[in-house]
Every structure is written in structure tokens, then in C-alpha cells.
Nucleic acid binder design. Structure first.
Length: 682
DNA sequence: AAGGGGTCTAACGACGCCCC
DNA sequence: GGGGCGTCGTTAGACCCCTT
């Protein structure tokens, strides 16, 4: 905010109009620049000379006189460009601000916690230097006390030296699983200095970058004032960030808070400037038989086992910190918050999507993980045309999405959308004329079975040939046997009929034993993906082959099912004289009829919302019609656990999503660990 | 020792906002 | 309207670590 100060009263003293015993008025003018100016704030308005930034959770407001007020006339001769006049004098405002502060903090006495550094400088005693040096270790780290004391011991032993050489390394195991552990280690290698080493572990957002950063940080923590050190690390990333930030020390808070692990990096640069350190980072190649690096690597692996993690206390930066986001009061999310927010948002969107009642026919498939979402995403995004956008592509995509969300315009959906155009009652499938014409019926329809069966065996043979010719994985035996045994290419009439003859009050469920039905809805079944995962070792190869195979498979399946259904449905529509023209004009014809009596203009707005409301309730709360809203029994809190998993461990949330039956008890070790040393609460 | 998986960056194109 | 700047999504590539 812009900094305003009271006008210098000496100017007013000479003014005869103020020569009175009454309280002097408070005139505020913009500050022209002072030590409080925050240069890191980049302002658009060049007229503002002095800006201050301060972290507050409450603002005290006081009133000012309006420009038109009589009071302003008294100051007209001062020729001030920009000023405000408070309705209350300065001392009154200061007094009320102080009492608000006391009331807010619920205190009567304030104990100063700051120990003045200038007082200590007189006695340059060793103990005092140690005390100053280890202040960051004591206050900036959150860990068990024995870790702090071991760091302080190292700092004491390093105190008489200035030139250091370190090898550092980080290590992360089982990344992307709930068992991920990250550790780091370093050792001092200058032969004239005690060759001490250190290792530790950390939690939250494990990545090798975080481990390596923490290794550098702990090195800097133990260095004495004015020390020089060379750090040999194998992380190109750390070196880049280090050099980049070193060259541009005045970085805006917005940019700073986007840096991953900014708590660690802020502390690193705070130490460099306050402890006057000279640091050089040197790149070494990992696993290149470098003795120091190998030892650091071993230390990092050892540190990984440690159950006592080291964290940064964000409150160390209370002077400069803006409001930081935390995860459920556990720990600060010290990375680009906008990027990170994508994770919970995506998982929530996914959870809402799979909980949608339209997908209830494949509810079992979703809960049992029968659908491979990774390949499904690739397939939905697959563009068979050679241009990025086209009408053709739009039609392909719209058909894919409608079919996959069970919203393809079948009888029941058309009846919902055009209630006056289609006949009342159940619209039966025009091909089998037994069951209702719905999205889920398409795979179960007995009319298509004779055509589907040869197609399945044709593509079974095609898959066997493809894998036999192109497989790259080490094990290639029993290809034929496995594919022959898979349900993927089997048509089981009994199971299909059982699914069809479901209780009419419950919705039809697609049988899990017939995964090929999922392909009709453009969802890739796990039963098919597993062959590609097993027999193709390269990631891009298996995607390419799978998409190609699926593309042909789905196109032929669609021809004999969806296309055939659509043709016969069109004939049926024609027999009832339902044409495309009528559908297109349906809304157009509807709306004038509603507004037809325009004679009473004040009456129409009352009618319109009422009618709309009735339509809404008709489809969402009437259980007889197919599309009433109902809760699907998928855990609503799943998205929270997926995100938590992503926060505590690593990897994409999708990797945790695929084990949908996730056990909440797996968090208890982390929770007990957190409880054990009283985590920061913000 | 090879390969997969993860993290991270740079580069690119596209787009929106702000200011001149 | 155009330039500057930031944002977003995607892709390629480099690197490291772990697993097999």
C-alpha cells in the first residue's frame, strides 16, 4: 500500500490560522521515500514514491473529511497536491490503534524476544558467535532436538576454518507410491578440515530436487561466518536455480512464491547474505565412480531410512512472508500454488464425473478399476485427422464424449429433450423391440450378437498376430493362451441376458464379465490394456499400437452396433413423422407459444420461471423417468485422499486413483509422526 | 547395464490483459 | 491496433534414481 505520513507540523506553526491551543489537525501526505519502502513490490503507478508491505489480519479504519467539507478550505493556501485530513487528531488514532492491538492479542505486557546483535559485538566471545551462528538452526528448522544438536556440534567443529569442500546427494525411493522416502547426505572432503558428514530425511512432496536442496541448505547452516565453500552436487536443477536466483536478488514476491521448495531456497539465500558466505556449486556426473559422490550417495541412502524428518519452519520468515497456503494445517505448500491446485481440482472433477448418475451402468467397472483411464484419455484425445481443428474432428469428438458419458441421443434421452415430439411411455429399441432404447442397451441388444461374435474372434486373432510380430518385452510365451482365455473377446449370451432382465426399478448395469462393451462407449478396458502393458516394453510403442488397434476395433464395432441402431431408429422416427426440421424448430416453436399472450406484459415473467422450474423437477425428482438425480455409491471423499496422497508422497494423483479401494489407515504412521512434534499451525 | 519413471526446463504457439 | 508481458498447455530433452 502507499505510504502516507503526517505533514510536518513546522509548516503549520508559521501559519497564523493554527496558532491556537486546540488539537492540531492530522493532515496526511504521500511519503516521498523512506527506509520502509519495499523495493520488491513492482507497482504500475509511477507516481507512488514509497510503498510499504506488511502482513496483517485486521485493518484499522479511520474517517477523513470529504473534499467538499469546510475544513479543506482552511488548507487551501498550503498548495498540497494530494492529501487527506483525518476527522480525529493523530494522538487519538495512535492511542486507539494501540488499544486495539492490546485487545486483539489479549496481552497486558509485551516481552521482547529479540536479542540485539550490536550488544554482543562488544564481547566477541566464542560462545556468542556460536549462539548467533546456530540461531537459524534453532529457529528455522523443525526437527527432533538431537538432529539440531548434531548440526550445532558440526558447526562448532567447523568454526576455525574458512575453505570447505562438500559432496552432497539426495535420494528418493519408491517414488509415486505411498511408501516413498526421501533422504539426503553430504560430507566434507577438504583434507585440512575435519571430514564430517551428515544425513537426514524429509517428508512432503518428495523429489530428488527437494532432497538435494535440503542437502545444500544443511551445509550452509553449519558454515561459519565469511566462509567459502565448493559444493559438488549432481543436480543440474539446483545449480540452475542457484545461479538464476543469485544473479537476480530482487525478485518480486509473486515470482518468488512460484519457485518450488521456496522455503528451502529462501533460507539458503538468507544464509548467504546474512552469514556472508561465498558458495560455488559444481556439477558432478552421477554414478561416474567419483569417490566423494559415491560416499554422499551412500549417506543419502542411509538418511532415507531415518524416521525423523527435517522441515523448514516458515515462521522464520515472518518479516517477509506473505500469507502462505497450507495443506490441511499440516505443512506449507511451498511451490507454485496455482499449478499445485490443479491436482485437487482435477481429482474433484474426476470424482464428480464418476459419481454422475449417468455413469451408473458402469458403476461396478469404475469401483473395481476395470477401466484404464490413462489409455481412455489418450483415446478420447486421439485425432485421426491431419488438422488440429475441423468439423469432422468435432463430430468425432462429440460422438466419443456423448457415448462415454452415456448421453448419446437414444430414445430415452430424446424423450427427455423433446417431450412433446416423442410418444409417451417407454420407447423400445427398434431392433430387438424388447428392451428400452437406452445407452446401456446397445451392447446388450440381442439383435447385434450374431454380428459381434465373428468380429470379436477376428480382432482376437489380429491382436495375437500383432503381439507375436511386434512384441518387445522379454517374456513372449503363452500369448495365444492368455488372449484366448480373456473375457475381452468372449461373447457370453447368458450373462448378457441376465443383465438385460434386470429388475425394472433398478438401472441396467453392464456386466463386468463383458469388457468389450466398454469399447462401445469409448472406454478402454483394463483387460485389453494389460496385453499391451505386458508385451510392449516401450511406453510410446504400446500407446501407439493400442490406439491403432482400438481405433480399428471400435470403428468396426460401431458400424455393426451404433450405426445399425441409428438407421433403424431413423426409420422408426420417419414412420412417426419426426424429422430433423421439427427437432430444430422445437425450441423456436415452444418459446413463442409460452409468450403468446403478450397483452399482459407484467404477467409473462411470472409464468416463465414457473414453467422452467416444473420442467426441472420433472426430470430430477421423478423416479419413474430415467434421468432423475440419484447418488451413486462411490466414496465422495475419495478426491481428498487422492490429493493427500499426492501431498504426502509423490507422483501424479492418478497413480493413487487407480487403487480406488484405498485404505485411510495408511496415513496413520504419518499422522502419529506429525503429532509427535507438534506441526506448525498457520 | 538397460530401461522405466519422475522431475524439471526450455521452447513454442495461442491467447488475454494492460497501456500507449 | 500494436507491443509488452504473463499465462496456459504441450512437447522434447536432459538428468537422476530405482528396479530388474
Amino acid at each position: 500500500m502507499e505510504h502516507y505520513i503526517p505533514i510536518n507540523n513546522s509548516l503549520l506553526v508559521n501559519d497564523p490560522s493554527f496558532q491556537s491551543s486546540r488539537s492540531s489537525p492530522l493532515i496526511l501526505i504521500p511519503c516521498m521515500g523512506c527506509h520502509l519502502n519495499d523495493y520488491s513490490l513492482v507497482l504500475q503507478d509511477a507516481r507512488i514514491k514509497c510503498t510499504i508491505s506488511i502482513r496483517i489480519n485486521r485493518l484499522s479504519v479511520f474517517n477523513i473529511f470529504h473534499r467538499s467539507n469546510q475544513v479543506h478550505k482552511r488548507y487551501a493556501n498550503l498548495l498540497l497536491k494530494k492529501y487527506f485530513v483525518s476527522t480525529k487528531p493523530l494522538h487519538f488514532i495512535r492511542y486507539s490503534a494501540h488499544s486495539i492491538y492490546l485487545a486483539q492479542h489479549n496481552i497486558n505486557t509485551i516481552t521482547p524476544v529479540h536479542t540485539s546483535l550490536s550488544a554482543n559485538s562488544q564481547t566477541s566471545d566464542n560462545d556468542d558467535i556460536i549462539k548467533q551462528l546456530t540461531l537459524p538452526i534453532q529457529s528455522a528448522l523443525l526437527c527432533k532436538d538431537f538432529i539440531k544438536s548434531s548440526l550445532i556440534d558440526i558447526a562448532k567443529k567447523f568454526l576455525p576454518f574458512t575453505n570447505f569442500e562438500f559432496y552432497s546427494d539426495g535420494s528418493v525411493s519408491n517414488i509415486g507410491t505411498i511408501n516413498s522416502k526421501s533422504g539426503f547426505g553430504w560430507l566434507q572432503t577438504n583434507p585440512s578440515i575435519p571430514q564430517l558428514s551428515f544425513n537426514g530425511s524429509t517428508i512432503f512432496f518428495p523429489s530428488s530436487f527437494k532432497s538435494e536442496s535440503l542437502a545444500i541448505l544443511t551445509i550452509l547452516l553449519v558454515l561459519p561466518f565469511y566462509a567459502t565453500c565448493h559444493i559438488y552436487t549432481d543436480s543440474q536443477n539446483c545449480i540452475d536455480i542457484f545461479n538464476q536466483k543469485l544473479l537476480s536478488p530482487t525478485i518480486s514476491p509473486r515470482r518468488r512464491l512460484k519457485q518450488n521448495n521456496f522455503l528451502i531456497w529462501d533460507l539458503i539465500f538468507w544464509l548467504i547474505s546474512h552469514h556472508h558466505l561465498t558458495v560455488h556449486l559444481v556439477k558432478v556426473k552421477g554414478h561416474s565412480n567419483n569417490k566423494g559422490n559415491d560416499q554422499a550417495d551412500a549417506l543419502a541412502k542411509k538418511g532415507r531410512i531415518s524416521d525423523d524428518p527435517i522441515l523448514i519452519n516458515h515462521k522464520f520468515f515472518q518479516q517477509s512472508s506473505l500469507a502462505l497456503f497450507n495443506y490441511n494445517h499440516i505443512y506449507i505448500i511451498d511451490r507454485n500454488i496455482r499449478k499445485w491446485s490443479d491436482t485437487p481440482i482435477q481429482s474433484r472433477i474426476f470424482n464428480m464425473a464418476v459419481n454422475n448418475s449417468s455413469l451408473s451402468p458402469i458403476n461396478h467397472q469404475i469401483t473395481h478399476g476395470d477401466i484404464d483411464w490413462h489409455y481412455t484419455k489418450q483415446w478420447i484425445n486421439f485425432n485421426p485427422t491431419d488438422t488440429p481443428t475441423s468439423t469432422k474432428l468435432r463430430n468425432i469428438q462429440s460422438s466419443k464424449i456423448k457415448k462415454s458419458t452415456f448421453n448419446h441421443p437414444t430414445g430415452n434421452i430424446l424423450q427427455r429433450n423433446y417431450p412433446d415430439l416423442y410418444p409417451l411411455g417407454r420407447i423400445n429399441c427398434t431392433e430387438c423391440s424388447f428392451d428400452e432404447d437406452t445407452n446401456s442397451h446397445i451392447g446388450l441388444c440381442p439383435a447385434h450378437r450374431s454380428a459381434i461374435e465373428p468380429l470379436l474372434s477376428k480382432f482376437k486373432q489380429k491382436l495375437i498376430d500383432l503381439i507375436k510380430d511386434e512384441h518387445t518385452s522379454s517374456f513372449s510365451f503363452d500369448i495365444e493362451c492368455r488372449i484366448n482365455n480373456s473375457n475381452m473377446f468372449k461373447l457370453l449370451p447368458n450373462i448378457l441376458d441376465t443383465a438385460r432382465q434386470a429388475d425394472p426399478t433398478t438401472l441396467i448395469r453392464i456386466p463386468r464379465e463383458q469388457p468389450w462393451i466398454l469399447l462401445l462407449h469409448h472406454l478402454i478396458p483394463r483387460d485389453l490394456a494389460v496385453f499391451f502393458d505386458n508385451y510392449f516394453s516401450k511406453k510410446n510403442e504400446r500407446s501407439r499400437f493400442l490406439i491403432q488397434f482400438v481405433s480399428e476395433f471400435i470403428s468396426e464395432l460401431t458400424t455393426i452396433t451404433w450405426s445399425s441402431r441409428s438407421r433403424s431408429f431413423k426409420r422408426w422416427e420417419k414412420s412417426l413423422d419426426i424429422t430433423l426440421k421439427k427437432k430444430k424448430n422445437y425450441r423456436k416453436n415452444k418459446s413463442p407459444s409460452r409468450l403468446q399472450p403478450p397483452l399482459s406484459a407484467d404477467e409473462t415473467p411470472l409464468i416463465a420461471p414457473f414453467q422452467r422450474r416444473r420442467q426441472y423437477t420433472r426430470y430430477y425428482h421423478n423416479k419413474v423417468l430415467p434421468y432423475f438425480k440419484q447418488l451413486v455409491n462411490i466414496d465422495v471423499s475419495a478426491c481428498i485422499r487422492w490429493t493427500t496422497c499426492n501431498f504426502l508422497h509423490s507422483g501424479t494423483w492418478e497413480s493413487y486413483r487407480d487403487s480406488l479401494l484405498f485404505n485411510l489407515d495408511q496415513f496413520s504412521p504419518i499422522q502419529s509422526l506429525l503429532d509427535s512434534y507438534n506441526p506448525p499451525r498457520t
